[in-house]
Design a protein around this nucleic acid. Structure first.
Lengths: 346, 346
DNA sequence: TTGAAAGCGGTACCAT
DNA sequence: ATGGTACCGCTTTCAA
């Protein structure tokens, strides 16, 4: 555990000079610089995060959280974990600006990114997958802002890192599980939020791959429910009536699972349709207890929020670069026996 | 974000006095004490962890890790995560003393606990469930040492907290899953490490409960394999030969799963026996790819190690009491599609 | 180009 | 019983 002071002593210079070299602030004679760098490397210097954190207070490090997800159950859990992290990081002087909106609207998100307070040095963003958002991200990163995408990524952007799940794998896992649980002919109906949402499209692709080699399984219809329970209810009702031979439902939506289940019940098909869903909203758990949903894919919502905040904290307060660009959480399988809401609080 | 200095100014005393009050070091006149406590409460004072961490360096906070688990695959992952945490906490001056042994021996563990360096202020312990260990823990906690039990708990002890899984629920989940995946008559063989290990006994109890209401399912034999692959191979071979009607295997052992699978293969029963296992050792994954193991229960080994170290760090370095006494991780279900070793590194 | 010093929040020790 | 001060490691500012 070598410190800046020790390096300074070893090199016969002052702490200020060492600091200037290690943080590339210039104004140091080249030979001193080389010596300092050499010693620092040899001694395996790594700054003490506590010292950094204490000094960082004066800079009022600020992160903006931008999420177009107000009221969607899954994201409420993500947000809750982030708020909890905020409280503990508050003691270090980390400031959080919340921009939580309901609209999944490119225009709105562009404006949010464009109008950021200039004290903001980091952004946690659930991005809309659109070229214009990519341009705004580029502008921010060029200005030195640390941008982290959460839950959904955006293609070809300059963001520093991503925290979320592998959606393709989520679909693949759900599909494999559906077939393991139902070893008979499968006539599948699918409901998902929107194919415009990158993650949902990837889920569908993963699911398709999982049934590709199974001659007994086929997809009869795909419904887009816009993550809206009421719309989901209506559209799934229509789908089930149009395809009475459906005996399995892949509910890959973020906000339309309950509506889809209610549609199954309304049709009187509760006993002969198997449902695989995503996430563990209270209504989803209710439908699992009832036996309608066989299993659900858990995506660690709280952990997603927690990891995102921690990466920002480490970067802004402790001056630590993120270890990985892609922080992918595992898609877990939950049945009613291992839903365990309390354990997920960790 | 009020500080000690600000409280001191508000109360017209020095920082030292405030510090004495807030940390119960005595030697403060009662009226001043009351005033300081009142102001601290009103201003919602909470110490800055960075300041604490910086000051804690001088005390050389030291934790001892005692685990009788050398060479058991599952615990290697726990240890690996702890070593990684050690590296990052090292920068704060946290010292870790490792006591990793192979013997699951009460005598050895008692001696390890009795002979701890007196600079050790915290212990992470994978305890043997024996009265004598409880007595040693009591002695340590009385002396002010923070004791955390990891992966297995010990009954009626004075340890500060536990990090691990709910074994009963693990058995329950495994049992429910086995029945969901195999909707026919189930003649079940069970292999587990030892009924002397609290967790394994609890797993079995959970499993029994899961099949209690299923007239089609019954347990034909329970084998204790001592978490040893070779012994497991031999004993499972004997079990399978004695009970040729076994068509499902509950492999609840920590170190005998591969041996049990090999026994199934040797018997030529690979096609007609379904196996549910625990953890994701390389050999277990191999048997999943092969189709012999249908699913496995994942117990977050890395996360267990990580959380244990973090609780110790927060306590010793940041002076933060643990939030919860029981830190239970969820039993996750993994099939070959969502094994994803890389994601679990987070 | 460089050094010296103050300050971030908390703790510990010495002097009174 | 209380205040003052030095120190933990790092950053920043000011003076030279």
């Amino acid at each position: 555990m070598i410190t800046i002071k020790e390096i300074a002593d070893l090199c016969g210079v002052s702490r200020g000079t060492v600091d200037r070299v290690l943080n590339n602030r210039g104004n140091v004679k080249s030979e001193k610089k080389q010596l300092i760098l050499k010693v620092a490397k040899e001694m395996n210097y790594s700054p003490n995060p506590a010292g950094k954190a204490l000094a960082a207070r004066k800079l009022k490090p600020t992160v903006a959280v931008i999420m177009p997800s107000l009221g969607i159950g899954f994201f409420d859990a993500v947000l809750e974990a982030m708020k909890k992290a905020e409280a503990s990081y508050y003691l270090y002087g980390l400031q959080v600006e919340w921009h939580i909106t309901q609209s999944y609207d490119v225009e709105v998100q562009c404006r949010q990114l464009a109008e950021l307070n200039e004290r903001v040095t980091a952004v946690i963003l659930m991005p809309i997958n659109h070229e214009r958002i990519g341009i705004e991200i580029k502008r921010l990163t060029d200005a030195g802002v640390f941008v982290l995408t959460l839950n959904n990524d955006i293609e070809n952007s300059t963001r520093a890192c991503y925290v979320g799940t592998d959606y393709f794998n989520g679909g693949l896992t759900a599909g494999a599980l559906l077939q393991m649980l139902n070893r008979h002919e499968l006539n599948i109906g699918i409901t998902l939020g929107s194919l415009q949402i990158l993650g949902h499209a990837q889920r569908l692709a993963g699911f398709r791959q999982s049934i590709a080699d199974n001659a007994q399984a086929k997809i009869l219809a795909v419904t887009e429910d816009q993550d809206d329970e009421i719309l989901s209810y209506e559209k799934n009702l229509a789908m089930l009536r149009q395809h009475p031979e459906i005996n399995a439902l892949f509910a890959a939506s973020s906000g339309g699972i309950y509506g889809a289940c209610r549609a199954v019940i309304t049709c009187g098909r509760e006993k002969d349709i198997s449902v695989i869903a995503f996430d563990t909203l209270p209504t989803t758990i209710e439908m699992m207890e009832r036996g309608l949903i066989q299993a659900t894919i858990y995506q660690h919502p709280r952990r997603q929020g927690q990891i995102a905040m921690q990466i920002i904290f480490d970067y802004l307060v402790n001056g630590k670069e993120p270890e990985k660009e892609l922080n992918l959480l595992t898609n877990e399988i939950r049945i009613k026996e291992n839903i365990s809401a309390t354990a997920d609080m960790i």
